[in-house]
């Protein structure tokens, strides 16, 4: 099984790198392979909103850069982990740049899920979506928004399972490990 980590850390953010290391260790302990993209080190153009990935080159963004590799890695993973500093409750700009480029993995045509409109699947299978948000000081509202965002993304990206966790940057390693272990040991992940 393969996991992809989209690491939306800002430069010099050592906390997120520690968390990423724990993610690697925990995935290793359940015999998953992992590949990470450190997004601030990668050249990804911003989505221009032209729907070229739907109507010009269906399924692939017209901008040829690492954003294309990320979309390919995402759809071919069994689980994608969105790792980000919680930014006003949402993802960091670094992570958002990559996430905006992922709409190529769904069809432009519509379907209904839970009574709401969404885009139809393009692929027959989609990865589990896990969100891990790192926050400096306790802030329940930000955590709620982050978790809601991950769960909404999971619907749009047809994830068979999704979960999220908030980590405080000053938390002890054992607590962080326990939180991440809980995400990865869920029965929906181990199936």
């Amino acid at each position: 099984m393969k996991a992809v980590i989209l690491n939306g850390s800002n430069k010099d953010d050592s906390v997120l790198f520690n968390v990423q290391k724990i993610i690697y260790d925990e995935l290793g302990s359940i015999k998953w392979e992992a590949e990470s993209f450190i997004l601030h080190e990668i050249k990804i153009a911003a989505c221009q909103g032209d729907f070229g990935c739907w109507v010009k080159t269906p399924g692939v963004c017209i901008m040829k850069d690492d954003g294309q590799d990320i979309a390919g890695a995402f759809i071919n993973s069994d689980m994608t982990v969105l790792l980000s500093p919680v930014t006003f409750g949402g993802y960091s700009a670094e992570l958002k740049k990559a996430v905006d480029r992922l709409i190529c993995i769904v069809s432009p045509l519509f379907t209904k899920i839970g009574g709401e409109f969404h885009h139809r699947k393009r692929y027959s299978r989609y990865p589990i979506l896990i969100g891990i948000g790192v926050i400096e000081k306790a802030d329940e509202e930000s955590g709620e928004i982050f978790k809601k965002l991950v769960s909404r993304n999971a619907i749009n990206f047809h994830a068979p399972h999704s979960a999220s966790e908030i980590i405080m940057s000053n938390e002890d390693t054992e607590i962080i490990q326990a939180k991440i272990r809980k995400l990865f040991r869920a029965k929906e992940v181990r199936q």
Binding site: T87, K96, L102
Partner: peptide
């Protein structure tokens, strides 16, 4: 954009 604000807006907010 994907249930939140587009990248440039997020960047501007930061």
């Amino acid at each position: 954009y994907v249930d939140s604000l587009p990248y440039p807006v997020t960047k501007a907010m930061e």
